[in-house]
Amino acid sequence: MTKPTEIKALVFDVFGTVVDWRSGVAREAAAFLQRHAPHLDAFEFADIWRREYSPAMEEIRSGRRPYVRLDVLHRENLVKVLKRSGITGATDAEIDELNLAWHRLDPWPDSVPALNRLKRRFIIAPLSNGNIRLMVDMAKRAGLPWDAILGAEVVRAYKPSPQVYSETVDILGLAPAELCLVAAHNGDLAAARRLGLSTAFVVRPTEHGPDQKTDLNAQQAWDFVVDDLNELASQLDASID
């Protein structure tokens, strides 16, 4: 286990860990669906759209497709979902606007105060599959106090590809153990640990809604296991003081 005092920077998975993507996408989709498919549930629509996320990135991780930013994948996935749902007649402008739902997600209640606490002692940045503009827009709207924007578009690869973690360590000029990945997803943490990063698991039991079945508990002995980001900040404060 890493000594907490070795940690100099924390990088964060964002979708699900820092922000509530499901509620935000459902909120943005509701008005669109009211116009085009009032029989569809906005949360189900958000879930269907999100299910296209990993397969689309796998095309790039596997080398079958060159890197494109997540905004592009999200829009392509949205067009697929609309066609599959039998939704016709939406204009390109409407589709573009709905695709910006991912730029307007709300943080979990603990995220902003905890990030501000952590920022006082550590470098903090997203390590997200989201592209730079998406992360900047989200941060400005939600008040996420990042020191930098890092992640997929910076290294032109999607998590959990190893280079996302190793190149981020190099960008920050740190030893791997000095960088801690904070995530609500065991798979993300496992990939980071294989590259020597420190790890912190945050339980987000409703990321996928009230019937969530995955990532309800830590599957390995991560360096930190916490119920929210304030608890992580307190543990790090206690270990340093």
Rank of each mutant, 00 (worst) to 15 (best):
M1S: 11
K3A: 15
K3E: 14
K3Y: 01
P4M: 09
I7W: 05
I7Q: 10
K8P: 04
V11C: 11
D13S: 10
D13Y: 02
D13G: 07
V14R: 00
F15W: 08
F15V: 00
F15I: 01
G16W: 00
G16Y: 00
T17H: 03
W21E: 06
W21L: 03
R22K: 14
G24K: 09
V25D: 12
A29Q: 04
F32Y: 10
F32K: 11
L33Y: 07
L33E: 12
Q34F: 03
A37H: 11
L40A: 08
A42C: 08
A42F: 11
F45Y: 10
A46R: 01
I48E: 13
E52G: 09
P55V: 03
I60N: 01
S62Y: 00
P66T: 04
P66Q: 03
L70K: 03
D71V: 00
H74N: 09
H74R: 02
R75Y: 10
K83M: 07
T88V: 10
T88N: 05
I95D: 05
I95K: 05
E97H: 13
L98P: 07
L98E: 02
L98D: 08
N99D: 11
L105D: 06
P107F: 08
W108Q: 04
D110W: 14
D110K: 06
R117A: 15
L118W: 01
K119E: 12
R120L: 10
R120S: 15
R121V: 12
F122C: 10
F122Q: 11
I123H: 15
P126V: 10
N129S: 13
N129I: 09
I132L: 12
I132M: 02
L134A: 05
V136N: 04
M138Y: 00
A139P: 12
A139H: 00
R141T: 14
W146V: 07
D147G: 08
D147Q: 07
D147E: 07
A148R: 13
I149R: 06
I149S: 08
G151L: 11
G151W: 02
E153K: 00
A157E: 11
P160M: 05
P160R: 06
P160D: 13
S161W: 01
P162A: 13
V164Q: 03
T168I: 07
D170L: 14
I171D: 02
L174T: 08
A177G: 12
E178Y: 07
C180P: 09
C180I: 10
L181A: 09
V182M: 04
H185F: 02
N186D: 09
N186V: 05
A190S: 15
A191M: 10
A192L: 12
R193F: 02
G196D: 12
S198E: 02
T199A: 14
T199G: 09
T199P: 13
A200R: 05
V202M: 06
R204V: 07
P205L: 02
P205W: 01
T206Q: 04
P210G: 15
P210R: 06
P210I: 08
Q212I: 15
T214A: 11
N217R: 14
Q219F: 01
Q220F: 15
D223V: 11
V225H: 01
D227Y: 07
D227L: 12
D228I: 08
N230Y: 02
A233R: 13
S234P: 00
D237I: 04
S239H: 03
I240C: 10
